[in-house]
Amino acid sequence: MTWYVARRLVISFLVLLGISAVVFFLLHLVSDSPGRVVLGQRASPEAVADFNRQHGFDRPVVAQYVSYLGRLAQGDLGRSYKLNEDVGTLLWQNAGRSAMLSLAGLVLALVIAVPLGVLQAVRRNRVVDRVATAVSYVLYATPSFLLGLMLIAVFSQSLPVFPAEASQSHSPWVVFTDPRAMALPVITLAVTSVAVFAQYQRSSALDQLGQDYIRVARAKGLPERLILTRHLLRNACLPLITLVGTLVPTLLAGNLIVESLFNYPGLGLLFLNSLHREDYPVLLAYTLMGGVLTVAGNFVADLAVAAADRRIELSK
Rank of each mutant, 00 (worst) to 15 (best):
T2Y: 13
V5E: 14
R8D: 07
I11S: 15
F13N: 01
V15H: 03
I19Q: 02
A21F: 10
V23C: 11
F24D: 07
F24A: 11
F25N: 13
L26S: 09
S31H: 09
P34C: 01
G35Y: 06
L39S: 02
L39R: 08
L39I: 05
G40P: 13
A43N: 10
A43F: 04
E46K: 12
E46N: 12
E46L: 11
F51D: 00
R53W: 01
G56A: 04
D58P: 08
D58R: 08
R59A: 15
Q64P: 12
Q64K: 07
Q64N: 07
S67Q: 03
Q74K: 12
Q74S: 13
D76E: 03
G78I: 00
R79W: 11
K82E: 04
L83R: 13
N84D: 13
V87S: 13
V87R: 13
A95G: 06
A99Y: 02
L101I: 09
L101Q: 05
L101V: 12
S102I: 09
L103A: 14
L106H: 04
L106Q: 05
L108T: 14
V118C: 04
L119E: 11
V122G: 05
R124G: 02
V128M: 13
V131F: 10
T133E: 06
T133P: 07
A134N: 05
V135S: 14
V135Q: 08
S136F: 01
V138K: 03
T142V: 10
P143Q: 00
G148M: 00
F155E: 01
S156K: 14
S158A: 15
A164T: 02
Q168V: 09
Q168F: 03
W173V: 11
W173S: 10
T177H: 09
R180A: 14
R180G: 12
L184C: 08
I187G: 11
L189T: 07
L189K: 04
L189S: 06
V191E: 00
Q201N: 03
L206S: 10
Y213F: 14
I214A: 06
R215Y: 05
R215A: 13
V216D: 00
V216N: 00
R218T: 09
A219D: 00
G221V: 02
L222C: 06
L222A: 12
L226P: 06
H231G: 10
L232G: 07
C237W: 12
C237H: 05
L238S: 07
L238H: 08
T242L: 10
T242R: 12
T246M: 15
T246W: 14
L247M: 15
V248Y: 09
T250I: 12
L251C: 04
L252T: 03
A253Q: 09
G254P: 08
E259R: 08
E259M: 07
S260G: 15
G266R: 00
L267H: 10
F271E: 03
L272A: 00
S274C: 03
L275A: 15
R277A: 14
Y280R: 11
V282K: 08
V282Y: 07
L283K: 10
V292N: 09
G297E: 02
F299N: 09
V300M: 13
A306C: 08
A307C: 04
A308G: 15
R311E: 06
R311L: 06
S315I: 02
K316H: 15
